[in-house]
């Protein structure tokens, strides 16, 4: 691990001032950053510990929605009664992520910023080529072992999967990220790789995530997070779906639908084609299964990950039907 100095920030302003130092990185829970420093991927000169700033970990839920401080722990949000009632998919995305220990450490802001688990990205000694780590150096994953790489949102430069679960639920329910004085939709916060895969977020120099805001909606209240993994627990998603459903007064007409996919794309992937195809129609297994296939429109498989293109729509259909009481 490269040498670094350690500073504690006493306030968000303090953090911004310290973070202006060249080579400085913000340290919150540390579960991603220390791991990547040990891998030789992250090479900070200075760590600015923001984990002791008070007042940034509040969780507030009211009729309008939820506001979650950036330093709230994953476990606190997963267990929060108000979140579980108004945003079950969000709470479930967190309780199914990582392990109990990691959920006690990792913060909501840091969770959003977690880096890809692409094994080529994480091993610079064995695989020098990585456009995300070293722009222009190439991609060792393309043509390599690609079982867990993305099928949606990929480019010639990068096929790394966005690994998080929370952001998938957030993107489904139109959540926004607060960067101090500026607010940006989660959907616009994450950037597809294109030819600049090193740039993953619309976060500017000197900016820090201070909170996440999620508007309340009937679809968010009736929602679920389904996650399929290679082992039952403590594993990243092979595919995941955050789905919310609002039915009309007849109990059969789909009034609102939210669908987002994780584990299959380079960013949290909102599936508006599925939503648009089903909104206003009757909830029926056949039409739900047919429309769910639109979730992977435009997917491009690598050598080892074509199964994700079959898996993801099935997950979407199962989530919609189970919310509607039909599965």
């Amino acid at each position: 691990m490269k040498a670094f100095t350690y500073q504690r920030a006493g306030s968000a302003e303090d953090a911004a001032r310290l973070a202006a130092h060249p080579g400085a990185m913000l340290l919150a829970g540390g579960t991603t950053l220390l791991d990547l420093a040990k891998c030789g991927v992250a090479e900070p000169d200075m760590l600015v510990d923001i984990g002791h700033i008070s007042g940034l970990d509040a969780i507030a839920v009211d009729a309008g929605g939820a506001t979650i401080g950036a330093l709230a722990k994953m476990s606190a949000v997963a267990d929060h009664a108000g979140m579980r009632a108004a945003f079950p998919a969000v709470a479930e995305s967190l309780s199914q992520a990582a392990s109990a220990q990691l959920r006690n450490m990792a913060t909501i802001g840091g969770n959003l910023l977690q880096r890809t688990r692409c094994p080529y990205f994480r091993d610079p000694a064995a695989f020098p080529a990585c456009n995300k780590r070293d722009p222009g150096s190439g991609c060792a994953a393309i043509g390599g072992v690609t079982r867990n790489h993305a099928v949606l949102g990929t480019s010639e430069a990068c096929i790394a999967t966005y690994p998080g679960d929370l952001a998938v639920a957030l993107v489904a329910f139109d959540a926004a990220v607060r960067l101090g004085g500026r607010t940006i939709a989660v959907e616009e916060f994450f950037l597809v790789p294109g030819d600049t895969p090193a740039r993953e977020h619309a976060i500017g120099p000197g900016e820090m995530i201070t909170a996440v805001a999620i508007p309340a909606s009937p679809a968010a209240r009736r929602s679920t997070f389904l996650k399929v993994r290679d082992r039952q627990s403590y594993e990243f998603a092979a595919a995941s779906a955050a789905v919310g459903l609002e039915l009309g007064p007849d109990g059969r007409t789909i009034r609102d639908l939210r669908v987002a996919l994780g584990g299959v794309a380079t960013v949290p992937w909102r599936c508006r084609a599925v939503e648009d195809a089903l909104k206003g129609t009757l909830l029926e297994p056949e039409s739900v299964r047919a429309a769910s296939r639109l979730a992977v429109e435009g997917a491009v498989a690598q050598a080892d990950n074509a199964h994700k293109i079959d898996l993801a729509p099935r997950l979407v259909a199962r989530a919609i039907l189970s919310l509607g009481g039909l599965a």
Partner: peptide, 26 residues
Amino acid sequence: DQGQCGACTVHVDGARVLSCLTLAAQ
């Protein structure tokens, strides 16, 4: 030593955490 096995679990502020991914300074 990379947060995947749990052998280093300790309690900080009463909560179980991984000591391999916690700096002593934190």
